[in-house]
Amino acid sequence: MSQLNQLLTYAILIFVAVTSLFPMYWLFNTALTPASSTVKLPPDIIPANATFDNFGAIVKASGVSKIPIPGSDEVWRVPRLYVWFFNTALITLVSTAVHLVFDAMAGYAFAKRKFPGSNLLFAMILAALMIPAQVTLVPLYMMITQWKLVNTFAGVILPGLADVIGIFLLKQYIQTLPGELEEAARMDGASEWTIFTQIIVPLTTPALAVTAIFSFQRYWNSFIWPLIVLQSPDLFTLQVGLSFIHTSEFGTNYGLLMAGAALAAIPMIIFFFAFQKYFMQGLRIGAIKG
């Protein structure tokens, strides 16, 4: 490749990359800019007097949760933003962990065990992959209402545990594992549960990691279902809380809003850099199915 060509390639790529990353940069730039400098022209392309004031402001603006302390009349006052952080982490971790275990079990059964009904059930799972989530939104809401789970974490978590993509991905992966180890263990009298936990699960680690990472991302960022189910601000997740602040009196205080958005984004950014390899692998596993 000629030098000019190479220079041009880099120029285009860097321009496109800068454009793609600009909203993220602007998010952090505004979050770190003092409130007085947010509304001025020209804007600071790099924060002139970088400050964490906006972060303090969003913590205050989110309000205060009063958490009763068991066995006493006292209440524990916590800024709501911290509570939202905790709620999001709790919902995400519980959902990811439970569905990972269930998906691995089902993926193993569909991949390695033949049993009456397995083909029919798996065909149903494939068909369900095509159905957009909006179809089940109203029936699920009616169900949750009937079960009196509106405004509870159980109402958010339970329907989200049903997942077909994870079962599908893990089945595809486990199918490629050689069967000898399993057979040998069975000869030695290992129980089926032992075979699953001691042989299948360790060999499936890469696919489990990919599934876990995509679930984590999906639950952390999920919006419409928690928005519908959760009603009291103390139970909100970060995404729902952000949209709540956006429609509140602080909605046009962009420094404050960007600080909140940055706080919701930072865990995912760290998560991405920590598990970058698996994100890229996961895309390819996902694409092979197509």
Partner: peptide, 11 residues
């Protein structure tokens, strides 16, 4: 190019 994809659409 992948990084912006991990952040929620709300943000």
């Amino acid at each position: 190019f992948y990084l912006p994809n991990v952040i929620s659409i709300i943000v």
